[in-house]
Amino acid sequence: MHELAMAQGIINSVIETANENNATEVTEIVIEIGKLVLINPEQLSFMLDVLCENTIVENAKFDIIEIPAEIECPECKFKGNANTDDLDHYAPIIECPKCKNKRVSILNGKDCIVRNIIIEQPN
């Protein structure tokens, strides 16, 4: 539900990097979104399209990669991806898929990262 705030953060970060690198245009943006972040990638993508109008990012293609929730279980030593729930929650279940332990450490999946951008620069 806070896709707008996220989208604004992403666009700001892209524009800042583009300016630092004298970009004339940004053509591609790669974003990683953890499965544990409570945003809907489709809504995010819509917001990004709206916000980038009339900016250097206007014609960029957004590449949104979903990063699975990776956990580690102190009980059975399982290390890997959490299962997603069979009821239709968007978010993964925070428990060990092997031994069902809930007291697991979360290794990955809570971040939203602008990974890299492809830009055009003057010669």
Binding site: D111, I113, V114, N116, I118, I119, P122
Partner: peptide, 15 residues
């Protein structure tokens, strides 16, 4: 003419 560059950002929006 212009050249194309792939720029590493690695900016965590949650951070």
């Amino acid at each position: 003419m212009h050249k194309v560059a792939d720029i590493e950002v690695q900016h965590n929006i949650m951070e």
